[in-house]
Nucleic acid binder design. Structure first.
Length: 245
DNA sequence: TTTGGCCCGTAATCTCACAC
DNA sequence: GTGTGAGATTACGGGCCAAA
C-alpha cells in the first residue's frame, strides 16, 4: 500500500503531526491553543506514546483547517513536481477503520492525498430510512458494489431498489440518496467509490468545509456526526494500539 | 517548552452463571 | 450444547501537573 516513490517506513501519526507543527513553526503550546488538544497529549502523540481518536482527529483537522487526509499522509517534498504515476495498494489491514453503531467503514489507499476517488469498504447496518435520516447529496458521482448481503438504495428521483450480492449501482451524488441493509438482511458489505472533480473530496465527504456540503450517503464518519463520540470505536491511522510503557 | 507520571473514564473483552 | 446477560478485568485515550 506504499507509493512506489516511497520506500521508507510508513510515517506514524506522531511524525506527521510533528512535521505539520514544524512546517508552521508552532510550539506545542501554540498548536494546543489552535487545536484545543492539551499540550501533553500532543507531545505524547508526536512521540508515538498515544494515538488520537477519530473525533480528536476530526477536531484537529477542523481547527487547524487542514484536510483529514493530511493526517494520513506524508507532506509533499518541497518543489516536488506534480505526481502523475501514483499508486496505492489497498489492504484491509492497513485501512483507516471507523466503527459506529450503524456502520463499519474501511477507507483504503488513504496515504494518497488529493485523490479524486475515495475507495471505501462498508458494512451497512442501518435498516430503515427513518433510521438513516434525510437523504444526503453532494457533488460528484459514486459507485457501489454489493459484496455480501442485500442492500436497499433510496434515491431522490427513483423508487427504492434492492441490490443483491454481485449487483451494483452508479449514481450522481447530487441526487439525494441513502444505502440501507435490505429487510431480512442484518448487515451488508459493499465496496464503493466516491468521485469528484474537486481535489479535496476526502475533506468534502468528511464534512470539513461547512454545513452546506452534505456528506455522502456512503456511511462516512460525517454521516454519523450526531452519534456520541464515545460510542465510536475508533482507530488511529496507524491502526494499532500501543503498549503502555 | 517539552516530557512523562499519574489518575480517571470508557469501551472492549473475558468469565461465569443461568435459561432454554 | 448454545445463547445471553451481568459483572469483573483489561487496555487505552485524555487531561492535569510537576519536573527536566
Amino acid at each position: 500500500m506504499v507509493d512506489a516513490r516511497r520506500t521508507k517506513k510508513q510515517p506514524t501519526l506522531g511524525q506527521l503531526l510533528k512535521g505539520l507543527r514544524a512546517r508552521n513553526g508552532w510550539t506545542l503550546k501554540e498548536m494546543s491553543e489552535r487545536s484545543g488538544i492539551p499540550v501533553s497529549t500532543l507531545s505524547k502523540v508526536e512521540n508515538d506514546r498515544l494515538t488520537l481518536t477519530y473525533d480528536k482527529l476530526l477536531q484537529l483537522s477542523q481547527r487547524l483547517r487542514i484536510r483529514m487526509s493530511e493526517l494520513f499522509a506524508e507532506p509533499d517534498e518541497a518543489g516536488e513536481a506534480p505526481v502523475t504515476a501514483r499508486r496505492s495498494i489497498g489492504q484491509l489491514e492497513h485501512a483507516v477503520r471507523v466503527t459506529t453503531p450503524n456502520y463499519d467503514y474501511h477507507y483504503l489507499c488513504t496515504e494518497l492525498r488529493r485523490k479524486r476517488m475515495i475507495p471505501v469498504i462498508t458494512k451497512i447496518r442501518a435498516k430503515s430510512i427513518d433510521e438513516f435520516g434525510e437523504l444526503v447529496r453532494h457533488s460528484g458521482e459514486e459507485y457501489v458494489y454489493v459484496l455480501a448481503g442485500e442492500i436497499e438504495v433510496h434515491t431522490e428521483f427513483y423508487d427504492p431498489v434492492l441490490l443483491d450480492e454481485g449487483q451494483s449501482i452508479y449514481i450522481d451524488s447530487n441526487m439525494g440518496h441513502a444505502y440501507l441493509a435490505a429487510p431480512g438482511c442484518d448487515e451488508a458489505i459493499t465496496i464503493g467509490v466516491c468521485s469528484s472533480a474537486e481535489e479535496d473530496l476526502m475533506s468534502s465527504l468528511l464534512g470539513l468545509h461547512g454545513s452546506d456540503q452534505a456528506s455522502s450517503a456512503l456511511p462516512t464518519p460525517a454521516n454519523e456526526a450526531n452519534a456520541p463520540a464515545k460510542a465510536l470505536k475508533r482507530r488511529s491511522p496507524e491502526g494499532s494500539r500501543r503498549e503502555r510503557a
